[in-house]
Write a protein that binds this DNA or RNA. Sequence first.
DNA 1: GTCTATACGGCGATAGAC
DNA 2: GTCTATCGCCGTATAGAC
Lengths: 193, 193
Amino acid sequence: MNTKEKILRTGKIQFAAHGYAGTTMAMIAEAVGIKKPSLYAHYSSKEAIFKGVLEAEFTDYIAFVTDILEKENQSALGKLSALYMAHLPEAGEPDSSNDFYYRFIKFQPPGLEEYIAGKYREAEDIQFEIFSGVVEDGKREGAIDPRLSARQVYEAYFLLLGGIDSMQGLYDAEYIQKSGRDAWQVFYRGIKA
Amino acid sequence: MNTKEKILRTGKIQFAAHGYAGTTMAMIAEAVGIKKPSLYAHYSSKEAIFKGVLEAEFTDYIAFVTDILEKENQSALGKLSALYMAHLPEAGEPDSSNDFYYRFIKFQPPGLEEYIAGKYREAEDIQFEIFSGVVEDGKREGAIDPRLSARQVYEAYFLLLGGIDSMQGLYDAEYIQKSGRDAWQVFYRGIKA
DNA sequence: GTCTATACGGCGATAGAC
DNA sequence: GTCTATCGCCGTATAGAC
């Protein structure tokens, strides 16, 4: 891994853990293993590093969702469940990608509000399109109540995911898992045919 | 309103909008209408102002929940629905209390992690106790499926609320309201007897 | 590309007059 | 209680040698 990639990797971890203002060039440099001014040989500013991380995260997230929802030989409910469960935290080290994504979707560094919002809407449009296809499959399979609209199922589903994220850092992974599974049962009862 | 209260009021708004590091003593002072050093006649430090706001917010939040869930002449489902709907954003100015609460529950300023976590657990214990009483009432009224535990209903419910919060700032109030009501229907189908 | 040295500004906080 | 003036520190970013 070259230095430029290393900066993105460690930058993501630091930004996710300490926020934009709370992360300093010195912190990133130290974690990378170089001195502070050397960062400027790879990125022109702190903001440029941040944007680099952000770009990569959106790309990865869309790939992650697409992978799960377009898996073959799986029922629609199987796919929805798999994507949901993939969002539950695992015990051990924190998931810095997830932390980064949710932190900066909600709390944008000053001056980057529009930039981030634009990226987000773009990612969400793609996500909704794939998701609603799966929901329609679920109706055809007789698993999802056809009276519910794909939009309605989508909203309830991502409200739950947002809720799971809002528990991170407040509870341990095991409790969030249990909580998340409990909520899934309620959700499932709510959409089943 | 005296200066000390004014500092808490404006401090809450600034902290909610810009975060802890992103809020400066100069910003608070200007919004209050005094100069920066005058703040120190009322609070010994930036952290002291923040803690003052935090304390008041937790107190207010518990009172808010208690008020709604202990209202007389209301069915259990009516209470749950009322509390849920009260969390949906209204069009117009942003709700700085809500923004403050959720921002700092999830992203604590360095050094205040334990302090905030402690306050939060305390508030949550009280909240769960009241909430589960309402759920048990709902079962007795024949409105909620008795096979569901109060804990399970609580978890699904607050996952939804967390999800609603995670939409704030990304969508306008009207869309979040619609989304929130849609999700409520799914939730209701999921818990009804 | 990496380093040492440094410029420059903004931060929290204090001193001391009124 | 409020002000002007200022301290000390640390942030981003640059200059210039190797």
